[in-house]
């Protein structure tokens, strides 16, 4: 974002002096805005090999599992990564809830 702001400032400064340059700057800004990942934007989920490498380096409590899931209300699969411990805890919790509801 700050990079884009810098580009916009430069564009304004140069706009009066040389219009062709300002056009070039604007084009550059537009292109950068389209291409640059920026801060806080989309972060690529880890690939299967990256997950495995990470898991090999940490203790079992910190290991993660990444799977492709289809969230409720959508047909678009999403790759989700969770701690294996969390998966277990959620599973136990849901099982208990179900048991309580069926009682």
């Amino acid at each position: 974002m700050s990079l884009i702001r810098f580009h916009v400032k430069q564009g304004r400064h140069l706009a009066g002096a040389r219009p062709w340059r300002s056009l070039a700057w604007l084009a550059a800004v537009a292109l950068t805005g389209c291409v640059a990942p920026g801060e806080g934007n989309f972060i690529r989920p880890p690939t299967p090999a990256e997950v495995e490498q990470y898991n090999a380096m940490v203790q079992p409590e910190e290991r993660i599992v990444c799977r492709t899931e289809i969230p409720i209300g959508s047909n678009i699969p999403v790759r989700k990564c969770r701690l294996a411990v969390d998966i277990d805890e959620t599973s136990v919790f849901h099982r208990e809830q179900l048991r309580r509801a069926l009682r």
């Binding site: 898991n55 079992p60 290991r63 993660i64 599992v65 294996a84 998966i87 277990d88 599973s91």
Partner: peptide, 14 residues
């Protein structure tokens, strides 16, 4: 054996 433990015994669960 991959994600829950480093020991040679399986742990029940997912």
């Amino acid at each position: 054996l991959e994600v829950r433990t480093d020991q040679a015994a399986r742990v029940s669960g997912w």
